[in-house]
Design a protein around this nucleic acid. Structure first.
Lengths: 140, 140
DNA sequence: GCTATAATTGAAAAACGTTTTCATTATGAC
DNA sequence: GTCATAATGAAAACGTTTTTCAATTATAGC
């Protein structure tokens, strides 16, 4: 179960397991849509009533540091998070509801390296994201 | 000259030409590195002493609305702007100095459409950006 | 060129998201 | 159970962006 492996990862890195962290991890490990800190806060208070927004920020920070979640940049904002893809994958995001799918880019790395060479750049990272409407939001 | 065509575009859209706008346009039309509002402000005050930061924000907003500049998302922040590419191009950005190059993606659109289809999404936009070090910053 | 009108300006204040501070609480090792 | 200390939530601080507002300035019409 993902939740437990995330909690183990926190523990193995010297972080304590608290009810606040359990609740945030439970939410983030299973979300299929990108959530920003306030959304995580709102959707987690039911499971952890006393939860503070500050703690959400701090927990997201740790999960990102451990590579369990990743920040997602969208036209409407750049503070939402998703569970990280396994290996390097690219994102397909619904503009309406934030639902995300991962996809693989066949041999894009080769192309990216060539572009870098042609411009004299050394490439260290790339972002590839597609935006559109998911099946559910198309129907609305 | 780019500056004049930008000023004409502003005028044709009902905006007045002021010394503040001329100064910001002069700066943005020629920059090769992504600049955020504060950087534009600092680098434009010499040419327009009384300039206010608020006016920089408002002018950038109009230039973006007219499609003359585009917002650039980077690992370190998402509030910098570059002159827009002609046609749809992709970005190669230096992590150190913000210098940007545009490049074309051969037949990526076809690939993107296929990914959308496979997931039942209709694709309306895509972002492709490479990050690395430009020749100048590699030497440092 | 002069005037009238309305857009634009900069300063200050407000709003917003995020981070820091700090006293209190709770975890985990012993 | 005790203890050291990590983690918490409330409040305050912070930096960025937006709004408000009175004064200024560009432009169209004369």
């Amino acid at each position: 179960m993902t939740t437990n492996s995330w909690l183990t990862a926190l523990q193995e890195n010297g972080y304590r397991l608290t009810s606040a962290r359990r609740a945030v991890v439970e939410k983030m490990a299973h979300t299929r849509t990108a959530l920003n800190p306030l959304e995580v806060y709102d959707q987690t208070r039911a499971a952890c009533p006393g939860l503070g927004l500050v703690t959400v920020y701090r927990t997201l920070e740790k999960l990102e540091e451990l590579g369990l979640i990743q920040r997602v940049h969208q036209p409407g904002g750049c503070n939402a998070y998703l569970p990280s893809a396994h290996g390097h994958q690219h994102l397909l995001i619904c503009r309406a509801c934030g639902k995300a799918e991962y996809f693989e880019g066949d041999n894009l790395d080769e192309f990216f390296a060539r572009v870098g060479q042609q411009n004299g750049f050394t490439i260290s990272e790339h972002w590839l994201q597609l935006f559109g409407l998911c099946p559910t939001c198309q129907a609305k």
